[in-house]
Amino acid sequence: MTIGVLAIQGDYDAHKLRLEELGAKTLLVKKPEQLDQVDAIVIPGGESSTMLKFLERDGFMEKLREFVRAKPSFGTCAGAILLAKEVANPSQLSLGAMDICVTRNAYGRQLDSSILEADTKLAGGPLEMVFIRAPKISKLADDVQVLATYNGDPVLVRQKNKMAATFHPELSEDKRVHEAFLKMVREAKASG
């Protein structure tokens, strides 16, 4: 089982490190054909507008769209924006893998970035959340499960075999979000 980490730009190394700490095999994905070698994909934090520039060429967008619709996928911050069906502020292209609407930079600029602790449905008590120029999940479909909220806003969600976080679990010591993702990948693999 190999977990791909989209490595166009952003904190992909932090995801790779965390996944490897948890015993997963990883592959940094920079080109569309590399998607054939992985069982799941993580889309990291970074600038979604930059990542889109790379996806817009060489058929990367089509290939990744097909991949994330079928296989387990996890997006943090910019990754959540890319996985969404709809993006606001500004409106931009996305992969449409999850029935959520994400608003970019919804909490303001870097000065409004923060590290918080909030309750989660993941076992083990409150979860530390690193928000950096964070987006906001402004709408979600009924079958999207909310795994954590902050101030009433959903910040960690799951729909079938997709997960999205508006914060950065890869920048926290707490490994539970990545553990939950890997569990989801293993379950998907087992059910064929």
Partner: peptide
């Protein structure tokens, strides 16, 4: 939290 938040944004700029 200060330095982690500050380097956090730099993490997002990596590879760019």
């Amino acid at each position: 939290y200060g330095l982690r938040l500050k380097t956090g944004l730099a993490e997002m700029l990596k590879g760019g």
